[in-house]
Nucleic acid binder design. Structure first.
Lengths: 126, 126
DNA sequence: GAAGTATGTTAGTCTTAACTAACAAAAGTT
DNA sequence: AACTTTTGTTAGTTAAGACTAACATACTTC
């Protein structure tokens, strides 16, 4: 089952996972606040993620990642943490490193990420 | 003079610079062929680049980068070559490395690129 | 010079993903 | 009970950046 995921969806899934680690439950409004988007935008995005089976939403409005959604979210979050850590350890300002990681995490291929991670570990950068 | 350049424009400028190195003159149709876009799309893009003073176009349809356009194009092309070279030297398949470089080159910050370049040189990766 | 090919432009369409505005329902407050 | 705040949804707008279709030159070629 090919799951074509675009950058926008990846970003929402990553944010839901991240929020679920620091909030008891995650709602649309939490996602909107975190990303600084309007709740109407998030509402539509959540509808799309529901239709693609990447999340489920309870009657109370609590958002949960499905296995598929969680797999994507965890992949992106791992990339985010790894890439920002590498950049910070190379001397890049933390805020800039985080912003760059936020963009690179969506465009790097599995193969390249794997190669970079391996090299960074060898060089004790991560 | 803040020159906000989006990914699309950067890509066109990079392509014009690249083509200028292997063709006597660069025209819209050459850009369209290289990027596999329709010539109408390129026509509109060239109009935008002209309005932003990133290129000039002669009556004969020959496209030339302005100083400002060339600066952007050279920056992106340097990133492209550097990033793809690093990935290839880390063992990534050449085609994948090139595709990844094509995307990362537009989203990495000046500061991060500089840090990565320095580290790659130290490690003899580039 | 007529016909065909190459090049460039314009007008209008489509998709994505944000936005505002308006509204409905629930929960909290006085 | 009445008012306010919070949350979510829907409808319609906007912008970017690709697309198709149609057309206007201009250059070739016979």
């Amino acid at each position: 089952m090919k799951t074509a995921v675009n950058e926008s969806s990846e970003n929402y899934l990553e944010t839901i996972l991240m929020l679920s680690k620091k909030l008891p439950v995650v709602r649309s409004v939490d996602v909107a606040n975190e990303l600084d988007f309007k709740k109407s935008s998030v509402s539509i995005a959540m509808k799309n993620l529901r239709e693609k089976n990447h999340i489920t939403v309870t009657d109370a409005g609590y958002i949960y990642l499905t296995d598929e959604g969680k797999a994507i979210a965890e992949m992106i979050l791992e990339r985010h943490e790894t890439i920002s850590q590498i950049l910070i350890n190379l001397g890049v300002d933390e805020e800039i490193a985080t912003e760059d990681a936020c963009r690179i995490e969506h465009v790097i291929s599995k193969e390249s990420f794997k190669a970079v991670l391996k090299a960074a570990k060898k060089a004790k950068l991560v």
